[in-house]
Amino acid sequence: MAILVDKNTKLVVQGITGKQGRFHAQQMIEYGTNVVGGVRAGKGGEWVLGKPVFDTVKAAREATGANCSIIYVPAEGAADAILEALDAEIELIVCITEGIPIQDMMKVRAILDTSNSRLIGANCPGLLTPGQAKVGIMPGYIATPGPIGVVSKSGTLTYEAVYALTQRGIGQTTCVGIGGDPINGTSFLDVLQMFEEDPNTEKVVLIGEIGGTDEQKAADFIDKHMTKPVVAFIAGQRAPAGKTMGHAGALVEGNVGTAAEKIEKLKSVGVKVASYPEQIPDLIMQ
């Protein structure tokens, strides 16, 4: 078992004819993900990587029965791509694109909240259920099947943690990148709940960073609703206030969203917090 994506995922790639979309579609196919087609307005009827291309997500869904979409559309058109997937009632939408204006995401979020779909990201590395499906850009070989659920705001830090686990022989149920934007589709809390309910997940790794209050809310959730142990790492302890650290969401505003505040809150509910990423496997094994 796993969460969000598995062998039954039927994936359509929005932006499959672009450089990024094509490259990662290839990687996902090689990993064994069931990619059923792609979407690019104006290229309907063509074939890319042996998969049919459609003009619209709706057409792709009708022809292939896709239940998941991944978006590699540039930032200017990404919000539109998400809205299109929502309109086509795709159950799970994963948006990799970085740089979507925050006001666009507020509108997307307002519509998402009235739909039955789930959005992962944007500005995220996507999802990886080892041995079953890779929906995103995570390097497949770093992960191996096992009992640890991983949820993270950061791409390379996720790879770092997952790779460190794998090298110590500790596998993962699913690795989830929720992204580094200030407003996203799925929060830590949503994913923690899914891991708590997933019978195969035994422990959870949570990788957060400065900015906002998601980690603090996660701590409250862990305290009230989680029986499974959680190990955390928070990046940005030395980040100055008022400066965006790469991710649009990684910003300490006034004194809100500091790493110290998040670490303290997590520790106060019994979460083991690693001092550096390589320490995560040690804490998981304890």
Binding site: S152, K153, S154, G155, T156, L157, T158, E160, G180, I207, E209, I210, F233, A235, G236, Q237, R238, A239, M245, G246, H247, A250, A259, S275, Y276, P277
Partner: peptide, 16 residues
């Protein structure tokens, strides 16, 4: 560093 999260973690480690 490649990646924002890893770049922050690297900063943190050197400061540590």
């Amino acid at each position: 560093v490649n990646g924002a999260g890893l770049a922050m973690a690297t900063m943190d480690m050197t400061a540590h």
